[in-house]
Design a protein around this nucleic acid. Structure first.
Length: 243
DNA sequence: TTCCAGGCAATAC
DNA sequence: GTATTGCATGGA
């Protein structure tokens, strides 16, 4: 059985797109291990130990981190989250009590602090209106500052919904491997990832875990191989699975 | 100095 | 609906 798989791996072009995407995940996971992204600060997230019940504040932290992370390095986001934690303001009510200037100062390391402060306050208002219920994707998208990727990030990591998150790195990888063309939109890439993984992973919870890890693994891998042009130089995925 | 980072909204065709 | 631009700090 392994022999067959390895024989196929050495000939990326004979694998279906769907199988490639599944095999890519396995290789990334074997290489880098579990990433365990969220929640980050609170409750000391235990990598590889998946909890499907998050507290309201943990879900909020995911959303907060998601907004802060937009077009910024995660390292900068950690600083901002730590600043907020030092103000004891990692929850909606406490953030609302901060002055606007204090909020901006706390999140300044993450950049775009004027916009993001506004986005955070908009999200808090929305989040409180939910009263604990799970928002739909469209409801999330209606919030200022929440686009497609952020909506999926909040649903996937905050609410453990099976929504795959696509980011700029994912597109670069898929493009470099010939799995999509340049014009591919978010929806098309998302469906490709989801449908491919649905073929091989039938268990819903397992799939959520894989979606969470897969996106994180792509980001982790891409920091090394898809940040500077030309993209994909030395990328093991490209070597094994490229068309 | 220049380039890039775990995007998004507003605006212009 | 597609393309362009502003948003901003911090690190390589």
């Amino acid at each position: 059985m392994f022999g067959i798989i390895f024989a196929n791996l050495s000939m990326g072009s004979v694998l279906s797109k769907e199988l490639k995407i599944y095999e890519m995940y396995k290789l990334l996971y074997e290489t880098y291990g579990p990433q365990g992204w969220w929640p980050f600060l609170e409750s000391g997230y235990d990598k590889g130990n998946y909890r499907f019940s998050k507290t309201s504040d943990e879900i909020f932290e995911v959303a907060l981190g998601t907004i802060l992370t937009q077009n910024t390095t995660f390292k900068s986001v950690v600083k901002s989250l730590q600043n907020l934690k030092a103000l004891d303001a990692l929850n909606p009510a406490s953030i609302k009590e901060l002055s606007l200037e204090s909020l901006k100062l706390a999140i300044k390391p993450s950049g775009y602090y004027n916009q993001k402060a506004k986005y955070i306050l908009e999200f808090i208002s929305f989040y409180e209106s939910l009263e604990g219920s799970v928002p739909s994707r469209d409801e999330l998208l209606s919030v200022l500052g929440i686009g497609e990727e952020s909506a999926d990030s909040i649903l996937l990591y905050g609410y453990n919904q099976s929504e795959f998150e696509i980011d700029a790195y994912t597109k670069r990888v898929l493009l470099e491997l010939g799995l999509i063309d340049e014009r591919a939109k978010y929806k098309e890439m998302k469906e490709l990832m989801q449908k491919s993984l649905e073929e091989f992973i039938k268990d819903e919870k397992q799939r959520v875990i894989v979606f969470q890890e897969y996106h994180a693994l792509i980001v982790n891998h891409s920091k090394d191989f898809y940040s500077k042009k030309p993209y994909g130089v030395g990328c093991m995925l490209k070597e094994r699975f490229s068309c």
